[in-house]
Design a protein around this nucleic acid. Sequence first.
DNA 1: TAAAAAATTTAGACTAATCTAAAATATGGA
DNA 2: TCCATATTTTAGATTAGTCTAAATTTTTTA
Lengths: 217, 217
Amino acid sequence: MNTLAEENYLKCIYHLSADAGIVSTNQIAASLNTKASSVTDMLKKLADKVLINYTRYQGVSLTPAGEKIAVGIIRKHRLWEYFLVEKLNFKWDQVHDMAEEMEHISSEELIDRLDEFMGHPKHDPHGDPIPDCNGKFKSAELKPLSTLTVNQCGVISGVRDHSSPFLQYLEKQQLTIGKTITITDIIEYDHSVALKLEANKEIHISREVANNLLIAL
Amino acid sequence: MNTLAEENYLKCIYHLSADAGIVSTNQIAASLNTKASSVTDMLKKLADKVLINYTRYQGVSLTPAGEKIAVGIIRKHRLWEYFLVEKLNFKWDQVHDMAEEMEHISSEELIDRLDEFMGHPKHDPHGDPIPDCNGKFKSAELKPLSTLTVNQCGVISGVRDHSSPFLQYLEKQQLTIGKTITITDIIEYDHSVALKLEANKEIHISREVANNLLIAL
DNA sequence: TAAAAAATTTAGACTAATCTAAAATATGGA
DNA sequence: TCCATATTTTAGATTAGTCTAAATTTTTTA
């Protein structure tokens, strides 16, 4: 079908274009830890396969065919993450690298059966939505915690940073998916945030943490 | 660690040396559907890494390090096959190609947790023994059904041919792992075998089938 | 709006894994 | 034991993906 490298480029372009629409060569190079010249080579190949729209110097976007492949890989990634956490008892900060390998197992039937085995979960352990077998999914309207105001209340529903250190920090602070929080104070000076957890526990987080925590109102 | 190709060569050499001890370049080429010259190149690389014992024109065997890697891959393959059949309800003739991909997922912790999740199974769906996390396993003393004599009785415990058509045929004849059979007749003319299944059902199989069915006495 | 800076592409080279064709070595039968 | 045949290795080429360095194009800014 497609090579490992091709799949990784498509997935990367998909994620980057969520923010930007059109994605630049340098963005891809930075995201994949490779060089811009390598990216250019691959873009030509993907354009030949009609998986991306590409004109020299003008950046790229996915074609419908390319997007379909990317979403399929993301579906696999998130289902395997769910499996690793729910069935094999891994922590949410341990599963990313394993899922990064498992997302390239090719069988569609395998992933559909895995989906069924787990009861068609709607979200992965980090709160990201899992596309269904047709690639459909709706991403909830989430806002960074940093955009809330005092007394606003919401449910932790996602993260913008998937790194282990960040996830471990959240775990320690009990700031995990599904928890309800209420903003009690916002410090003008450094934009840090004080908030109340369910058991009335008060905690205080930096602006950066608040920026990377996504809340459903 | 090691590349996909290296892992496949090591696994292949492991399987071939079960019969022969020392394995020839041509045997490997035939088994991997590649050319002898490609095999020679890879053998040099594996010898440099001290994963095989290799002298030009003299065939190869695995070093302890090479065998350890091969057994690790086989452990993964068989555990994933067990998972696919027991948890995702695939048939025993459907799982080989998927496991062929999954055996290269690198995490040791993943495979150990999978092993635990499934209750440390001792055999895969085809009756092959699953090495434990130290690479230890004992293969039962199995004999091809074709070597039994009239009135001998035993339990179907393995197959020598893992191809879908053979496994599907066995399934249809209810000749599956764990079934007890008794030889009722051996036809001199073509060495075909008549046998009795548990429910006193009588069936008749060719010499070739009898050769590929492994029995524990 | 033109020069400087940044981004991108091209050119040429490298590695891993493969191939074909030719050369070298081993083996088995007369 | 020697030759024909089979097996294996070498030589040289190819493809995918990557790299560095140089050239080109775009963007910024003065």
